[in-house]
Design a protein around this nucleic acid. Sequence first.
DNA 1: CCTGACTATTTTGTATTGCAAAGTACCTTG
DNA 2: CAAGGTACTTTGCAATACAAAATAGTCAGG
Lengths: 113, 113
Amino acid sequence: MIPTQMLKGTLEGCILGILSQKETYGYEISSQLAAYGFGTIPEGTIYPLLLRLEKNGLVSAAYRPSELGPRRKYYSLTPAGEAELQQFMQNYAELSRAVGNLLSALKGDTDHE
Amino acid sequence: MIPTQMLKGTLEGCILGILSQKETYGYEISSQLAAYGFGTIPEGTIYPLLLRLEKNGLVSAAYRPSELGPRRKYYSLTPAGEAELQQFMQNYAELSRAVGNLLSALKGDTDHE
DNA sequence: CCTGACTATTTTGTATTGCAAAGTACCTTG
DNA sequence: CAAGGTACTTTGCAATACAAAATAGTCAGG
């Protein structure tokens, strides 16, 4: 299980990433995240996050009926959202490199082998 | 600059990692983090975090005088701290893999090439 | 018809954690 | 004695993942 604190900041970027592929809705995003290897991200996380993204203008939303259940709220990236996604990927790469540097210094000590 | 939210959870693990190499003190940890590629992590982050680690029994601490300034508080990993570090590395790998999966699906679409 | 299971969203409140800001204090150098 | 670098502490704040409960639609089985 990925600890909740470690998801902070990255989860938002990941959802932007999912939305960059195709417009979709909260319940579906939840199962996609599970498929990518994040555990089960609970509703209490997904939906407030999506509302926040909408409020900040990073996504736009529209309710549409479903054939087999209650209405769905479909989200899609705005230009601001795409820019934010780019920024996220850059920031994540930076973090990833820093942590990689540190962790590789622990086991290896030697930089070759 | 790595956004503050994205550091949550990982920073603690990284400091445990630094302490696993050798016992050291806050001010020095700060400069090591900078060297690894985290930006400048401010004092208001480092010191409270170290106090928290101590309170939780993951590190032990001892004041020792310095030849060229005020006394230093040296920290070293406890067995519980080492265990926590192992746990962190595992969790980080899990997160890293999940985000990698997701992000690689964005540009590539194809899983080979 | 009704109960349960699955789909789907919203809202309220809580805990964790990085950070800003201010203060204390030691040492060296001009 | 003032200034700057070293070194630690404390208080309070902001952001965000999550738990929990409520609402509501569809469908299958009894």
